[in-house]
Design a protein around this nucleic acid. Structure first.
Lengths: 255, 255
DNA sequence: CGCTATCTTGACAATCTTCAAGGCCTGTGG
DNA sequence: CCACAGGCCTTGAAGATTGTCAAGATAGCG
């Protein structure tokens, strides 16, 4: 633990542990998954000198929308949600991030989103000024970040299509498929892990928790998926889900 | 959507005029508005050598979702809409662009969106390979593009919040305000130009054309705006619109 | 000056939300 | 080991916002 329990000296880092590692980057397990992979040799050493290794407990936020964007982050473990709030509390989750993901691009002078740990999070924190200085000397990294931002733009536009034009069933199907990609299991179907709550899924898909729950139940009834626990399900009929996600099943029965 | 007459010889460039200018960049009116501003001297000359100046007529598309992302573009005049389609024709407009805007970042190997001219468009086209090569030698430009991508990510997240969590009135209010910023008129109110159709506004806001029309009429009745023609209106009560856009007027009368 | 496309308005229907209650799972303590 | 408590999830019924279908008005253009 070792959290800085509520002391006024470090308000943004409640429930957070700092560990200044010696040369953490060279031996980082997450490096191959992340933008840090673009660096090597002395550049990597330099990155290590400006990296601050931290831990964040479940439920703790480590980026707050509207705060000065003083840091970049790189997740080295766990998962988190990114979200925006309206004054009355309505929430839009803009993305889920996990090991290897880089945070802080969607910011000008202030963060455009908040970030909160869904699972215990380990991350590296980089002071923005120092990191930008490093970028000035490392075109490869700058390039990599631009490509990353481009990729996130593609994802963001896909999400706009989902939020603006897809039905509830199409949204949930799209979500399950995006979560299943990569962890394919032959035979019984693909396992999908849902480390977030129904509320967070709803806030990601622009729906209510009840609609998400009902839609998942309908998928279960229609044998498109099987659910072991609320946090884990199996894709039984990927073809049907694909069709739904692409908008091909708008008027289907599905009970 | 443009009526592509389907000739196989130049499928992507129907209705398009190519003009190879001599050193067009150094004298470009749009340069100060665009990322090209990051270049100077010999770098700018080099940019000029790879730039192809083009014109696009109203209704013609110059980027098609799913096509190989072979080019970057820079608008030097006119305006266009960016959009994604579902197989059944449902459309989500992801943004409107105008003079100075750079296009093509939201693409990996293939374009993630289509682009179609709303007003007669002038633009510069850059072959992707040549442009990337130039970027390798111009860190300032690479940096600028990353910042641009970051800014677009901020906008995209704001749009996700709008599409996922705002009511129809809040969406229309947000849209009008985002369009009015920058062209302030003292006295009578701020003039807002709408070079796009109601359908395109609806596809941008995740609504139907009827809902957009009804909402604008309600704003007019409530004296929040005045409408001269469908393509131009005046913001009469910015304060009320601001409140609506931020989510502060969910249960208001407004008949 | 009339034609056509776009926009506006109205009535009705559907999806999704809201409100409400019950069930399940997990973790804790006796 | 079992009982209990609390949060989360599921399910149901009613209601509201928005979509759909249809017709009429307006504006721009030849």
């Amino acid at each position: 633990m070792g959290a800085n329990a509520g002391s006024a000296t470090e308000p943004p880092w409640l429930g957070v542990t700092l560990r200044h590692g010696l040369d953490p980057c060279a031996t980082c397990d997450a490096r191959s998954l992340s933008v840090c992979d673009a660096l090597a040799g002395p550049d990597l050493d330099r990155l290590a000198t400006i990296a601050v290794v931290m831990s964040v407990e479940i439920g703790q936020s480590f980026i707050t929308e509207g705060d000065p964007a003083d840091h970049f982050f790189n997740l080295t473990g766990g998962s988190a949600k990114l979200y925006k709030l309206l004054p009355d509390g309505r929430c839009q989750v803009t993305g889920f991030v996990q090991t290897g993901d880089f945070l802080g691009l969607a910011a000008s002078t202030h963060y455009a989103f908040s970030a909160e740990a869904l699972e215990p999070v380990q991350l590296c924190r980089f002071a923005r000024g120092k990191f930008e200085a490093l970028l000035r000397d490392c075109p490869a990294m700058e390039r990599r970040l631009r490509q990353l931002a481009s990729h996130e733009l593609v994802m963001a536009q896909e999400q706009m299509l989902l939020l603006g034009r897809k039905s509830a069933r199409e949204r949930v199907a799209s979500f399950l498929l995006s979560r299943s990609r990569g962890c394919a299991h032959a035979g019984t179907g693909e396992r999908v892990l849902l480390p977030m709550t129904r509320t967070e899924i709803a806030d990601y898909l622009g729906l209510t928790i009840e609609t998400v729950s009902r839609t998942l139940s309908a998928f279960k009834t229609a044998r498109l998926v099987a659910m072991h626990s609320p946090a884990e399900l199996l894709v039984l009929d990927r073809k049907a889900l694909d069709k739904l996600a692409a908008g091909g099943g708008k008027g289907h029965a599905l009970t």
